[in-house]
Simulated scan of single mutants.
Amino acid sequence: MSSDPRRPSDRTYRHVERLIAGVFRLLGLRITVHGSQHLPASGPAVIACNHTGFLDFTFVGYAARERGRIVRFMSKFSTFENPLSGRLMRAMRHIPVDRWSGAIAYRQARRLLDEGEIVGVFPEATISRSWLVKRLKPGAAGMAITRSAPLVPAIVWGSHRILTVDGRRSLRRGKAITILLGEPLHPADGETIPALTERLHAAMTALLGQALDSYPDAPRSDADRWWLPHDRGGTAPEPALAAALDRAALERINQPFD
């Protein structure tokens, strides 16, 4: 069952979509979408996307519009605590994820799949500072298996050049954004969650390679090579160092106040 745009929650979603599209135009973004046909025109699906910037979800939603679909994203609980963003997120039926009670979020996600919705997941859980695909959490594969839903791998490349971790942000106009949706992965009979998660990781890694190969922009200077992975001539940290930086950032967040 596809989403009904007459519902109040979907009207809010459409209004926000138009607002975001307007912001994209103001920024002069050159957005390219490939593979939107891999999203089912109706019925449930799980989209699993890489995570390099704070705006990734807006670009996945942008790509889904080409199929007339909307995506209910699993998002950090802190996003829902803000009075403005929280009200909008709930109106759009996104899913709050509390680190300490994640099972509640997955139950909500499975209910949405049962209703024929598309659920968006960032299975790396946190932004990848290496810009490469990190080890994936098993939730996306688990939902696909338990609900016999297609699992669509996705890559957004370029959004981290606008807004990402460590205070990196830029409103310079005209950046390129590449969005790739891959062929859906259908759980095989008896396939385990780890096995499907491994297939998902391979598919996302391959899509990222395609995005990097086709990306039209290049660094303007040596100082601008920060947004490229280490194996593509960039200065982003290698995965092991990036993982250590992730752990350090998490420890800072979890430090108690004096």
Rank of each mutant, 00 (worst) to 15 (best):
L180Q: 10
P138V: 02
G43K: 09
A141Y: 04
L208S: 13
E238R: 12
G234L: 15
T192S: 15
E117V: 03
K175E: 08
V23Q: 05
G61E: 04
S36R: 10
E251R: 13
S42N: 14
S221G: 10
H230S: 13
V152C: 06
F57T: 03
I145A: 03
D217M: 12
M92Q: 02
G68H: 02
A195L: 09
Y62H: 14
A244P: 12
L181Y: 09
A103E: 14
A140E: 05
S128V: 03
E183K: 15
R69M: 05
T79F: 11
I95C: 05
G139Q: 00
Y13G: 02
A109E: 06
L84K: 07
R172I: 03
A236N: 03
Q108P: 07
L19E: 03
G209W: 09
P153N: 08
S159V: 03
H201M: 12
H94G: 01
Y62A: 07
G120R: 00
V152M: 09
R72A: 05
L212S: 14
G167Q: 03
K137A: 14
L163N: 08
H94C: 02
W100A: 13
A195E: 13
I20Q: 11
L196I: 04
A188T: 01
L180G: 04
R72K: 15
D4H: 10
A211D: 11
